[in-house]
Design a protein around this nucleic acid. Structure first.
Lengths: 157, 157
DNA sequence: GAGAATTTGTTTGATCCCCAAACAATCTCC
DNA sequence: GGAGATTGTTTGGGGATCAAACAAATTCTC
């Protein structure tokens, strides 16, 4: 049952954790996420990285259905519903009736949504600049390339 | 209001997304997470990456308090409570009474917890091998190093 | 063309993660 | 000894996530 142990050390031993890709990935991701939230909060905007990705996808693929969007985001279609509800309530996007398929909604940004997205994109660029401040342009290219490899590599199993 | 748009393209345009560190990071992270879950499910074990990290931390720092652990994990101490509850119910760890400070719990793995962790660590190694199958050993070192830079870089703002 | 099977968006239900605020027990500091 | 801080817990409020069931609409099959 594990003996009641001694004193907690001042600094923590992380064992094998720092050598694990999954662990380091999670920490970097969390730091990036924090800076993203921070950047937007400071600018008086409220948006998550996921919402930004969604808006970009809808902007660049206007008319796509909720199923197609859910698939692109890697989430269930039922998960997408409340997310779209919120974005729609904020006046950023709309569910249009599809002229060709009565089952689907044709998603599109509103004009306000497009304006907001331009604003958001500026913030994201500033955010990216900041989180990459420790890295050279070449390093960023390498990093993105390796991450892409991890993504496609793990996916193909 | 956004005009009701045309036809959804077969393949999605991701715009600037693939050039964003945050986006690529999130996708890699998600793929890794999926493979982690898959690896454990196939072995008939149930564990999340977060739980694994927690167990390693407790194992390597037996006797540490919930506050110290929460800080190391970057979560609120109230968030930690139900997580520990579950792990404790599974018989993997225990909250001991601290002999020196009546407020704190001295966390430690049980013997079953240590045995389980050894089993988990084997699975994690197999998982790491798989997700890094597309990368050379040198690339993994570079990747981990760059991710660490991102983490500490973003943290210091 | 009529009926069967599939697809889509939605609702509901279940877990889970997260934080903030409040609380009792305990410790620390004066 | 008493004021103030710390620790673990509970409660309340958001969300994210999936699975299952459903109605409406489309596609497939005969």
């Amino acid at each position: 049952m594990g003996r009641p142990p001694a004193k907690p050390p001042a600094t923590l031993d992380r064992g094998l954790l720092p050598s694990l890709l999954g662990y380091v990935l999670r920490r970097a991701q969390s730091a990036v996420f924090d800076d993203f939230a921070n950047t937007f909060a400071k600018a008086g905007e409220a948006l998550t990285p996921g919402e930004f990705g969604l808006l970009v996808l809808v902007d660049r693929n206007a008319g796509l259905s909720q199923m197609a969007l859910a698939r692109a985001l890697g989430i269930d279609r039922s998960t997408l519903v409340p997310i779209l509800d919120r974005l729609q309530e904020r006046g950023l996007l709309m569910r249009h009736r599809s002229p060709t398929d009565g089952r689907t909604h044709a998603l599109a940004l509103t004009q306000a949504g497009e304006k907001a997205l331009a604003r958001f994109a500026r913030l994201v660029r500033a955010h990216e600049k900041r989180i990459a401040s420790q890295l050279s342009a070449a390093e960023i290219r390498v990093l993105i390339d390796l991450l892409e490899k991890v993504h496609t590599g793990a996916r193909s199993l």
